[in-house]
Design a binder for these strands. Structure first.
Length: 755
DNA sequence: CGATAAACTTAGGACTCCGATC
DNA sequence: GATCGGAGTCCTAAGTTTATCG
């Protein structure tokens, strides 16, 4: 396990023994240059600089790759370099301070002991597997009877506890009485259903009964008032409604930098022309001659007007919305009313891909009932299509969880309407996910031993597999499926890493065998990390790089399906992403253990929790764009700090003169004055410190998003157990939505829960 | 088998709301 | 009462994995 210090507290990183730093604080946006060549040169020189912190440009790569599956598999990839220009890369800038590494996980056995007490013997994964297999394939194996019974007991207990917890908030809620009264009246009209205490389907079906009202369609297009004009080449031009609608999509984005991008504009213009009448098409031939400003102004005015609406009007809208939610936002699945996540069909608009997306700006077309497939049970009341329309299809497939689907026109993929995370069907799956990760915990040492052994294999494919798995485990990288070129932004994960994404340093800053990663991952978020690896890994990497071009695959004999197939053999249900879940959760648990001081008060404990959470977010590379207002609010804070400093200086000066005074006069009064001044100085120092801590804290969280890991990677039972152990109310950590999603964990985990 | 489609999870940014502060 | 700023919600893109197809 690695431990880094963050603000003086240590932060553990997944596995491995070396330090793991995220540096690169310069994010230097001036990176977006139109002149690629120049950039390329710049990049090159940066590259030669070992300290470079900039994101490297994507090099051209006409891929012509040859894979030798023991000499045979050849793969040719044509990559169009042209397309990949570096463009703004969000760079990642954690603070500079070198984080301190503490220690390691692989070699030293202690980790398993501390983690698992009872489990410290090796589990044979095979053994485990055969056991499981008994109950059948799509068994959802994670809930043995035993646990179940236990759960029931606990559940009862918990029910009570919950009851006392709820009203407990009174302590600090200022608006105690009133609110409480109101809430109680409205709230919890009936008992919450505890699906986790019930049997699950074991036959692969997801439900027996499903009834819903179908989707809510986007409101029809409302043509612009005639005083809002569009100009082409300076001349007013009345557009046909179809062309006008698409034009408004563009007008609405006018302020966005998207609309200045070449690719975006071209895609948009091409699709827009398809919507034009022949006359329009013949007239409008150049997007740059189009003047959308009146439309844009009109929409801005509308937004403004909406904001200025009276309370009553707003209320009315809210109520109408609520009505729609009541009608369409729920379904009945197996006797229970469940919330639907996204019951509104996506409205038409211009596609906004992330990163350098080749399809940005394309028209996302309007979905009509004729495009929509309804899924519900035969014996339910089928949803009715809007008057005068019909569904594409109504089917009754209880092997899937979706209620509605349609095919989207940008990538041709299918979109679904599914249930809310609080639903049984999502919750069971989530719970299962964490159970799988916990099973991994039992055999992870063995798996690690194996892949370390595989580094020595005679077979290249095995070595590659073993090194890739090491990265996935140690760095929590994603699997990295192959992507179709030209369809999406150029991003990679572990298996799809290319030569250009890593750099090897036999020695760097006093460390041996350092690998530098620099690539764009999911959502075109940059992953930058330099990390010392074992010598054997390093040597293997050198081998993998031999005779390859920058645009060639690093792991040319590996892909996600090979990897997952292998993982499946190591443990039932094991896939690459399980490692992320496992490492995230185990890190949280260990960090909490380490950072929580029993004598701390609640806010300090919460701070510790957030720090543990942050460690995970860093591990998983969960970033966010610094808030738009970040600089400003930081400045505000800074000026507060400056003011404090001035104040401190003044106070000190006064203290000094008071002292001098006291020296001369030596009377009681002046002595007292000195004391008072001293106290004042102290107080101000404290305040200053607080502000500074706040600033550091905020700065540190500037680009780190905690929510993603909290929602998707951290076994909620760890959090619940921690809350119970330290008497922190769960509301302090999970908001309402989160509590709904994790209701199962809140109900079943007790303070002794161990991941 | 490998390719592709389908299903489902994970992700960050935009937007909205609401209380605090100017 | 206007603005600020953070939390929460919504939105839908972008991944992974599984299922199906030829």
């Amino acid at each position: 396990m690695w431990i880094l210090t963050v603000e003086g507290k240590s932060t553990v990183f997944a596995v491995g023994q070396e330090s793991h730093k995220h540096k690169d604080k310069h994010k230097d946006k001036e990176h977006r240059h139109k002149d690629h060549k120049k950039d390329r040169e710049r990049e090159k020189s940066k590259y030669s600089n070992s300290e470079h912190k900039e994101f490297s440009e994507k090099k051209h790569r006409d891929k012509d790759k040859v894979k030798h599956k023991d000499g045979s598999l050849e793969r040719h990839k044509e990559k169009h370099k042209e397309k990949r220009k570096e463009e703004k890369i969000k760079s990642f800038s954690f603070d500079e301070k070198p984080k301190k590494e503490k220690e390691n996980g692989f070699a030293s056995p202690p980790r398993i002991k501390t983690e698992t007490d009872g489990d410290s013997f090796y589990y044979s994964p095979k053994y485990e597997k055969s056991l499981k297999r008994e109950h059948d394939d799509d068994d959802i194996e994670f809930k043995p009877k035993k646990i179940k019974v236990e759960n029931e007991k606990k559940a009862k207990k918990r029910k009570q506890e919950e009851e006392d917890i709820e009203p407990k908030k009174k302590t600090k809620d200022k608006k105690t009485d009133e609110t409480d009264g109101k809430k109680k009246a409205k709230k919890e009209p009936e008992e919450k259903w505890k699906w986790w205490e019930e049997e699950r389907y074991t036959d692969g079906s997801k439900w027996k009964f499903l009834e819903h009202k179908g989707p809510v369609f986007a409101p029809p297009y409302e043509p612009l008032p005639s005083n809002v004009k569009f100009y082409y080449d300076g001349k007013h031009m009345k557009l046909s409604p179809q062309a006008e609608e698409v034009a408004t999509f563009f007008a609405k984005m006018l302020d966005h930098e998207y609309t200045t991008k070449e690719v975006f504009r071209n895609n948009f213009f091409k699709d827009w022309k398809k919507e034009m009448t022949p006359e329009e098409k013949s007239k409008i031939t150049n997007l740059s001659k189009c003047d959308f400003t009146e439309m844009s102004e009109y929409f801005k005015a509308q937004t403004e007007a909406r904001k200025q609406m009276s309370k009553e009007e707003k209320q009315k809208i809210k109520e109408e919305n609520e009505r729609i939610v009541q009608e369409y936002g729920f379904c009945v699945m197996d006797n229970h009313k469940e919330r639907i996540a996204n019951f509104r069909i996506e409205p038409p608009g211009l596609f906004r891909g992330r990163g350098d997306h080749p399809k940005m700006g394309m028209l996302k077309r309007r979905i009509r009932p004729e495009d929509v497939i309804i899924n519900c049970s035969k014996d339910s009341k089928h949803p009715k299509p809007p008057p005068g329309t019909k569904w594409k299809e109504v089917r009754h497939d209880n092997k899937v969880t979706w209620l509605v689907s349609w095919t989207e026109n940008i990538q041709g993929s299918i979109k679904y309407i599914m249930l809310n995370p609080s639903s049984r069907i999502k919750g069971e799956k989530d719970w299962q996910k964490y159970e799988t990760a916990r099973r991994l915990k039992k055999c992870v040492d063995q798996i690690r031993a194996q892949y370390r052994d595989d580094w020595k294999s005679k077979e290249m494919r095995i070595r590659q597999r073993a090194v890739a798995l090491y990265f996935i485990d140690k760095l929590a990288l994603r699997a990295g499926n192959e992507k179709e070129e030209g369809e999406t932004a150029d991003t990679v994960g572990c298996c799809s890493l290319r030569v250009e994404h890593i750099k090897l340093y036999p020695e760097l800053n006093g460390q041996e065998f350092v690998v530098e990663f620099d690539f764009l991952g999911k959502d075109s978020i940059r992953y930058y990390n330099t990390i010392p690896v074992e010598k054997r890994v390093f040597k293997n990497l050198q081998l993998f790089l031999e005779n390859k071009q920058p645009e060639d695959d690093l792991f040319d004999r590996l892909n996600t399906s090979i990897l997952n197939k292998h993982l499946q053999e190591l443990m039932d249900g094991l896939t690459a992403k399980v490692f992320r879940t496992y490492n995230a959760s185990i890190t949280l648990q260990q960090q909490l253990k380490e950072l929580t001081c029993p004598e701390d008060n609640t806010p300090a404990k919460i701070l510790s929790y957030n720090r543990a959470n942050r460690a995970v977010a860093i591990l998983c590379n969960h970033q966010r764009a610094p808030p738009k207002t970040f600089e400003k609010s930081m400045q505000n804070l800074q000026s507060k700090i400056d003011a404090k400093k001035d104040q401190l200086a003044d106070a000190r000066r006064e203290l000094k003169s008071a002292k001098a005074d006291a020296k001369v006069r030596k009377d009681e009064k002046t002595k007292k004055a000195v004391e008072t001044k001293k106290k004042a100085v102290q107080r101000i120092e404290e305040q200053l410190m607080k502000l500074e801590v706040q600033a550091t804290d905020r700065e540190e969280n500037k680009q780190i998003a905690l929510g993603t890991s909290k929602l998707n990677y951290l076994d909620p039972r760890i959090t619940v157990a921690w809350c119970k152990k330290w008497n922190v109310t769960i509301e302090k950590i999970y908001n309402k939505t989160q509590r709904e999603k994790f209701a199962w964990a809140i109900d079943m985990a007790d303070k002794d829960f161990e991941f």
